[in-house]
Amino acid sequence: MNRTPEADFRQALLNPELSAPAGLWAWNGSDPTTRFDVYRNNVIVSLIEALESTFSVVQRLVGEQFFRAMAREYLREHMPNHPVLARFGDSFPGFIAEFEPASSLPYLADTARLEWARVQAYHAMDAGPLSAETLQVALSEPERLPQLRISLHPSAHLLRSQYAAVSLWAAHQDLIPLSQVDPWQPEQALILRPQLEVEVIPLDRATAAFTACLIDGLTLGAAVDETLNTHSDFDLNAALALLLQRQALHVLSY
């Protein structure tokens, strides 16, 4: 009588080909497997639906049937490890990237990364933006400028894709016509929630590279050097103006 049913349940819940765990019965003597299927269905369907609500554009790109089959495969190895479903699915984009049947849609994983970033930005810590005055004061001290560190808003996530993940996402929000999207065009975007709405802000490659340096915690001097190394056309003033105006900057430190 030391054996508890939880372990048996787990096996049977996640493997629809198994019959109900031993030790279950129904008052009318009917096969408990049909009844146990209610739990099986609740678990699998509710978790697939949680993924569908986070990754709705991915779902529309592959269709409901394909998505459900892919999500079911994912669940075999990646059941949530805590009850906060807003944080369930962090490894789904990586799973999609490796998922053989989806390999003909190489932009799918980055589209999933964008959707994941949007949900994380939505629930991120609230914070006020950096004021233009504060930035102005810092920029007026050229000797200290290379040591300046600019941190991004807590909701900020950067997406750098070899594909047009941003446009694909936008087309599924009816922001642009899908026919105009060239999936093979590399795109970058900053995902941000300055107030209550999540914004997807397209960035050019140089600004995205610079933003990545800021996210990595580099000083302004190091960030500019690094960005200029790969993007000789980088315009620091324009980049800072854009990030400031979109309220992507958070605090300054030295």
Binding site: F9, L13, V43, M79, P83, L85
Partner: peptide
């Protein structure tokens, strides 16, 4: 009800045996 076991969350309210233990 129970919903987690061995670090996995099942997102459903699962039944338990009603024993003294």
């Amino acid at each position: 009800a129970w919903s987690s076991h061995s670090g996995e969350f099942f997102n459903d309210l699962l039944p338990l045996p009603y024993t003294e233990e």
